[in-house]
Simulated scan of single mutants.
Amino acid sequence: MASASEIDMETLRSSAAEACGLLKVLGNPDRLLLLCQMTQGEYCVGDLATLTGITQPTLSQQLTVLRHNGMVSTRREGKQVYYGIASPEAMEVMQVLYKLYCQAPQAAEHVS
């Protein structure tokens, strides 16, 4: 019979593997740009291309990776496909990254 610490270690290993998978997907500048933009809401492919400067086929390739890893979901409206962040974990991480790296820098306070 496994002790409580062994069960916790197995849970921790599983969680660490899951976190590594998330970080591996995030470890691409184009995917980070896309997710960073999507922290602000849903966007169609054309808008994502314009806003991020990522061109086809790279855009399609990176959106496919994000979709296959459960990071984004799609919604079709007519001929447009909209992408949004589907993973609560990815959203949490992206909100921290957005706060640290994407927001406009605050005006520095002048010290006398």
Rank of each mutant, 00 (worst) to 15 (best):
Q56C: 03
T50H: 09
G27E: 08
T58D: 14
N28E: 04
E18G: 02
E42N: 06
L34S: 03
Q62N: 14
N69V: 01
E10A: 09
T52E: 08
N28D: 12
G21R: 05
Q62L: 03
R67I: 05
M38A: 05
K24D: 13
L34E: 07
L48D: 04
D30Y: 02
D30N: 10
L12S: 15
N28A: 03
V65P: 07
T50W: 08
C44D: 10
T58N: 13
L12V: 08
V45C: 11
C44A: 09
K24F: 11
L51V: 00
L66W: 04
K24R: 13
E42Q: 12
L59T: 06
G70L: 00
S14Y: 10
Q40D: 12
L22R: 13
L22Q: 09
L23T: 06
A16D: 12
L12W: 01
D47A: 15
G27T: 05
L22A: 14
G53C: 01
G53D: 03
A17L: 12
L51C: 09
L26I: 00
G70W: 03
T55Y: 04
L51S: 05
G53I: 04
C44F: 11
V25F: 02
L23W: 12
V45A: 11
R67P: 01
C44E: 03
N28I: 00
V65K: 14
Y43V: 08
A16H: 05
T52L: 05
Y43C: 03
T52Q: 02
N69P: 00
C20Q: 15
L26N: 00
E18F: 07
V25A: 13
T58P: 00
Y43L: 12
L35W: 07
Q61P: 00
H68D: 15
L34F: 03
T58A: 15
T64C: 11
G21T: 10
L12C: 09
G53Q: 00
Q37C: 04
T58E: 14
G27F: 07
S15I: 12
R67M: 13
L12G: 06
E10Q: 11
N69K: 10
